[in-house]
């Protein structure tokens, strides 16, 4: 089996400040990896570097492309990266407004990725958009409404539908449940888990919510000050943390 994503010594600094440093990991098909750490630990910087939105100062990010096998996405041209971003990748932003076109209907939001990769049959595009909206529990009668009229949870689900419609293999998520009510979070988590399993998705989830990674992630990477301080099986890292920072993180969670 070929790893889906191989990250080697990725480093990004902002002047003297470290974004992330010497990050290495391998993500296998079907694996979900969580990245946790406090604000400023470099997890969002890392996610931007992995998804081609930010050019790291050093390192390699090898993605196993469908056509050409593993390729360094950092050495790819922008057109190739954009094509990957809308076919094989998905990016779910914390704030749905960053990931949606607020001036375009729900159906148009989902259909955009299809049209971007060449779909030119309105009926087909609409049918596939409707199918995906149903899969994220958005009823057909809301299809022509704009996202601004949706609740926060619905917007987040719409963002997920918009991202998954092209059948990507790798999903980047930045705090996907941040800013949502706990009851809405639970529903979203269950949906994400189901989709990950049904579609055999691999995912990198950045969050500071340890409960979210316990439920979604197979593996966990703990970051502090731009470095990975600990990595391993999610339940092992959470239940038997080896690094002082992880121990602090785990012991700081409020119990309900």
């Amino acid at each position: 089996m070929t790893p889906l994503l191989e990250v080697r010594a990725v480093t990004k600094t902002y002047g003297a400040r470290i974004g992330c440093r010497d990050v290495d990991f391998t993500l296998w098909p079907g694996e979900v990896m969580g990245v946790v750490g406090e604000s400023g630990s470099g997890k969002s910087t890392l996610l931007s570097c992995l998804s081609g939105q930010l050019a790291p100062d050093a390192g390699e990010v090898l993605f196993d492309t469908r056509a050409g096998g593993p390729r360094d996405i950092l050495a790819m041209d922008e057109a190739g990266r954009r094509m990957l971003a809308r076919t094989d990748w998905a990016f779910v932003h914390q704030n749905p407004r960053d990931g949606l076109r607020m001036g375009v209907s729900a159906g148009g939001n989902v259909g955009e990725r299809l049209m971007a990769v060449g779909a030119r049959h309105y009926g087909d595009i609409r049918a596939r958009a409707a199918d995906w909206l149903a899969r994220v529990d958005i009823t057909a009668d809301r299809m022509d409404d704009r996202p601004g009229t949706f609740s926060g949870g619905m917007q987040q689900r719409l963002q997920i539908a918009r991202n998954l419609v092209t059948g990507p293999r790798l999903v980047f998520m930045d705090e996907p449940t941040g800013g949502l009510d706990v009851s809405v979070q639970a529903r979203l988590l269950d949906m994400l888990r189901g989709l990950v399993r049904q579609m055999g998705l691999s995912a990198v989830i950045v969050t500071h919510d340890l409960a979210v990674v316990r439920l979604l992630a197979d593996r966990l990477m703990v970051m502090k000050g731009g470095h990975v301080v600990e990595a391993g099986l999610t339940d092992q890292v959470l239940d038997d943390p080896q690094h002082g920072y992880t121990q602090l993180l785990v012991s700081s969670v409020l119990q309900v």
Partner: peptide, 8 residues
């Protein structure tokens, strides 16, 4: 837990 891989 070690057998399960939960503890290192």
């Amino acid at each position: 837990r070690m057998i399960h891989g939960n503890y290192l």
